[in-house]
Design a protein around this nucleic acid. Sequence first.
DNA 1: AGGTGCGCCCAACCAATCGTTGTGGCTCGC
DNA 2: GCGAGCCACAACGATTGGTTGGGCGCACCT
Lengths: 327, 327
Amino acid sequence: MDTNTLRSFVRAAELGQFQHAADELGVTQQAVSKRIASLERELEVRLFTRTARGVELTLDGQALLPHAQSIVAGVERAITAVRPGSRALRIDVLGLRSAQAVVLHDYWRSHPETNLDVVTLRVNDPRVAVAAIEAGDIDASFRTVTDPAALPPGLQMIHAFDTPLELLVGPRHPLATARRLTPPQLRKHRIWVPGIAPGSEWADFYDQLATAFDLRIDAAGPHFGDEVLLDTLAESTDVATLVGARDRYMWPTHHDLRRIPVVDPILAYPLSLILPSANPHPELRGVIAHLGTLPRLPDTAWLPSWATTPQRGGDNTENARGPRPRP
Amino acid sequence: MDTNTLRSFVRAAELGQFQHAADELGVTQQAVSKRIASLERELEVRLFTRTARGVELTLDGQALLPHAQSIVAGVERAITAVRPGSRALRIDVLGLRSAQAVVLHDYWRSHPETNLDVVTLRVNDPRVAVAAIEAGDIDASFRTVTDPAALPPGLQMIHAFDTPLELLVGPRHPLATARRLTPPQLRKHRIWVPGIAPGSEWADFYDQLATAFDLRIDAAGPHFGDEVLLDTLAESTDVATLVGARDRYMWPTHHDLRRIPVVDPILAYPLSLILPSANPHPELRGVIAHLGTLPRLPDTAWLPSWATTPQRGGDNTENARGPRPRP
DNA sequence: AGGTGCGCCCAACCAATCGTTGTGGCTCGC
DNA sequence: GCGAGCCACAACGATTGGTTGGGCGCACCT
């Protein structure tokens, strides 16, 4: 089944004539006729009743039309998603279940007309993300370079939002029944955060956190996937992990895991967005505006040293204005 | 762009190897390689990075994957929508904006896994619908045969739900500011209901309604489409029409039309569902159950003589049970 | 009633595409 | 260093998809 065939079907159905559809598609009427005939052969149903004035959909054709329309529209979106020069907004996130992805999903749901693609770089290194933005492969990235001087000219990093951390524990963990926890209560408990690349901003964050509150955070070791992590937590009586409040870690009624907010102070990870200083993707502006609407944390929240708390996005979004010549 | 090509792309991306995708699709590895190459040529981007172990998605490939998956899934749905023998549930409604379609849409939204197709017979005649059900072209129809004896053996008609009528008027109509109206208040005002086929159940309904409350209902004349009707109403100082409370007649902030409920008594049109007595489509059962959850009207509501108010679906749905051998 | 226009289908031909087999290059692991 | 595994390229045959040309049926018009 060819998408051009489906397009022909859609236009023929909408216009009521093979001839007009053919004119519009730049082929002969016979070509459209053959396409429809092959479609009818493949589906083993008659899609049109042929009349003297043109064609009319059969019931089967009527049933097929919305599906075909949606497929054709999907093909259009697919093409604009990747065609160089005018492709859709493409943002790099740490993972599809991360708070960043959740926030982007929220944005997309309230702006469904946005052509937004969410990708994840295979290499978990902000420098790769920076290079990808410079190369134009992605339009922005929710990564953080802890040293602002390391940001190459032409790129900027703005504050996105802060995610409060929650403790994720299995039902047999001693803290499992707590409604809330304070950082001192976490002391002595083993906190396992696998998949953190040494030297990364996350490693730095957990380092600072462990030092500040004297916690036992084990951020080393390989990561075998969330499945393994969740399975381990569900079984364990002494291992817990930290997740962002917006992270979509839980499967529906999967393991009997509990998320327990940490307060007094709230522990938060500051998320940033890296994007080109000049001519960012035009649709980025809406995303940045959406970030500004997210609830902000109280000033008592704990943040790592490199968190640029004073400037909270607002002013920086000015740079995202203006038209953007597409290459 | 061929859907088999997209399917190859999806499977190759998910499996990480052209070879496996090829095995699964029943073609050679070279064929998959050529398909991907042609896709890359068409989109002018590289979709995979080739490694010694297989392939890995590029950023462009990552962006394309969800689109391709959705297209492939759409193709699957499209095929099951029409393939004879195992096609999706197909229900005939009077129009896509009608209360029937709205109710079906509600049902589908709460049961998105249902493969439901909504079609509209070109010929507005219950006998055609009956013939289409007997022929297996559709699985059920929201039409009414006023004489139950006219229903051929093998088919049954059950009560679906009742739609209260509302008056639809333009801003310059004398009744435009009313919050509610009673039938006597409608007397002397011209009510235009175009597109009613003479002899149809709707004609009978409006006949009975006009007689019962001494109304001026003009159900004759051709129907040039809702656009014309709405335009006429918006301009007119003396023409109104009747619409069902659930009908989706209004465009968002289109004309400045007002819907005014009619009460004391409520005027309701009883909608029925015609379906085969034996072996109806298995998915119909959920739809019928959904109909039973709709709010019922007070007993004071006015209904036409042929309304079978006493039996409200409940018992009749028993017949919808049991497995259904698909031809 | 017969003519005419319009739109679709069928047939024949040609070009392009698709899939196969065979082969070569590359990387990884032993 | 060598084999195993995987992808790309080349050549060939089969199939598909497009075009042109001709014919049929229906509606409308004179």
